[in-house]
Design a protein around this nucleic acid. Structure first.
Lengths: 138, 138
DNA sequence: CTATCTGCAAACAATTTGCGGCTCC
DNA sequence: GGAGCCGCAAATTGTTTGCAGATAG
């Protein structure tokens, strides 16, 4: 259990949060590590992981478990959906509102107590769509 | 690229498929390994992984990338949603039909070419719901 | 001061892979 | 007979953790 009042605002924690807020690319831990390293060259990947976990527990950011082998991090902690490019792994916000009513549909049908849902779209980003079109026409 | 006509039906491959078809628990690779080991004690975990990958490529089964650190496998290769118990990690089919119209909603709003979506529900299974109720009343 | 935090390196967990021998067709 | 497969063990990948020294408040 993390107690907010015991936390310090270290240089590392502040820079990690600032850089995540700046980048809207939903970076993985190691991508963010490379970004943060430009400002704090001696930071370690372990510190990045530790702080991302703490910031998530505080509700400052959110940890995304999308398909793919790596977690992604998002400075926007409000509920929203994502779309991922199946070709280059780019992740963007899906511009549609969360649909709580999806859970209502299940409510009568399941023996589970429903707590939430995750919706993720798969597709091709504009760049990869274009490349694929070029392929076809050859 | 896997070519179906070059594949053999080995004992291992057949038993892995049979056991996955028997169990509707959406097992992880190591759970299935333990199950299959009762019939083929000398099988290796690597063989289980290799065959699950091949059977997925053939469309015989599907690999589920739900939240959590391990992949799950499902002998039902048709599109359907799942619900996972946040407490004990049990996974069941979510008894509602796939909603292709979710993708229509995004269609006009995004610059992506939409190819599909994944929807996963989180909740508490009956056993864990009950246990939590008991906790409260203490 | 001192509890919390960091860098480092080792540990861990899930999955993948190289290899030499085996087996299905 | 030989391409495809297996068991085994080592490698890889992403993430977590133990520890001794550093630092925020």
């Amino acid at each position: 259990m993390i107690q907010a009042e015991k936390l310090r605002m270290t240089q590392q924690r502040r820079v990690i949060l600032e850089e995540l807020q700046k980048h809207h690319t939903h970076p993985t831990a190691d991508m963010l590590y490379e970004i943060v390293r430009k400002r704090l060259p001696r930071i370690s990947l372990g510190t990045v992981y530790r702080n991302l976990e703490i910031l998530t527990a505080l509700g400052e950011i959110q940890t995304l478990e999308l398909s793919g082998s790596q977690k992604r991090f998002d400075a926007n902690s409000r509920k929203h959906y994502h779309i991922r490019c199946m070709h280059c792994d780019r992740v963007d916000d899906a511009p549609i509102a969360p649909m709580a009513q999806l859970e209502d549909e299940l409510y009568q049908a399941t023996v589970y107590t429903i707590i939430g849902h995750r919706l993720e779209f798969m597709g091709l980003c504009p760049e990869c769509s274009r490349k694929q079109e070029e392929q076809k026409s050859v």
